[in-house]
Every structure is written in C-alpha cells, then in structure tokens.
Design a binder for these strands. Structure first.
Length: 138
DNA sequence: GCCAACGTTGGC
DNA sequence: GCCAACGTTGGC
C-alpha cells in the first residue's frame, strides 16, 4: 500500500500543534462534514498528515501520521456514521509554511486548502506534500 | 467586524 | 426536487 498524504485543519485556540505534541496521540473527532468524512474513512495506518492552524496562525505547522484508521466518533451519537481516526505527531516543521507562501507557490496552486477553503480534512497530491515539506525545511 | 463561500434545512 | 433562508467557516 502506498502512503497517502493528507492535511487536517484545526483552530489552534481549540487544539494546537503544541497540545498535540504534549498528548503524544489524539483522536481526531468532531468532523461533521460528509466530504471530510470520506477522507477520514480513506486514511490508512502510516499515512502522512500535515497539521494546519486555521484562523490564528494560518500556517502548516507540523507533520503527523495515522495511528488508527476510522472508527465511530465517540463524540457523535451512536450509529450516526461519523468517524474519528487516531493521529500521532511526527515532527514540527523547521519553519511553519504560511497560507501566503502556499498561495505564492506554483506547485500548490491547486491545493484543496485554497480551492475548498472550508474543508477540514483533505487529500494532498504527492507533489503538494513534497513542496510543503520543502517549504517547511524538512 | 465584515463578508464570501458553501453546506444544511425546510417550505413548497 | 428546487431553491431561499440561514448558519458556519475562515480569510482579510
């Protein structure tokens, strides 16, 4: 199975990269959007996931990986169909990649983060993933 | 604080 | 099934 690449968005005032690192592992709960749910269900163990701070920060701050595939979201009603995955931090980027940098980078012009600005869980093409790593100093 | 994008809800 | 109203997200 080839590794897939993703990006998840979170407001740092709700749950920041630092909170995530402190926890060491987290259940990615609370997603209540059908498109995002499809992406959660498609995640496989070991997939690489960039962590983006929305609203305050507006930058990609770190890299995580999928530790557990989709299971019923404990914060949703039973049988509702909403799912969560478990993520573990891999490493912070040496330099956070800002939204402005992303918008200014030709390889990232079609990134879902820009094209579908409200989606909270999205796939990344391999080239997009590599470009974010490069801009982030990794 | 404003507003564009867009998903959801509910009347018809 | 359509679409207007409404709520939420998130950049600016």
């Amino acid at each position: 199975m080839t590794t897939q690449y993703w990006l998840v968005k979170q407001e740092p005032t709700d749950y920041s990269w630092d909170d995530f690192v402190r926890d060491g592992r987290t259940a990615w709960t609370g997603v209540r959007n059908y498109a995002a749910r499809l992406h959660l269900r498609a995640m496989r163990k070991g997939d690489q996931v960039f962590f983006y701070h929305s609203n305050e920060g507006k930058c990609v701050v770190g890299l995580a990986k999928v530790a557990a595939t989709a299971y019923p979201d404990p914060t949703a009603e039973a049988e509702s169909g909403w799912v969560a995955v478990d993520l573990v931090p891999v490493q912070a980027l040496a330099e956070p990649v800002t939204l402005a940098q992303i918008k200014a980078s030709p390889p990232l012009k079609d990134i879902a983060l820009i094209r579908q600005s409200r989606l909270s869980v999205m796939p990344l093409r391999a080239a997009e993933f590599k470009q974010l790593q490069k801009l982030g100093g990794r």
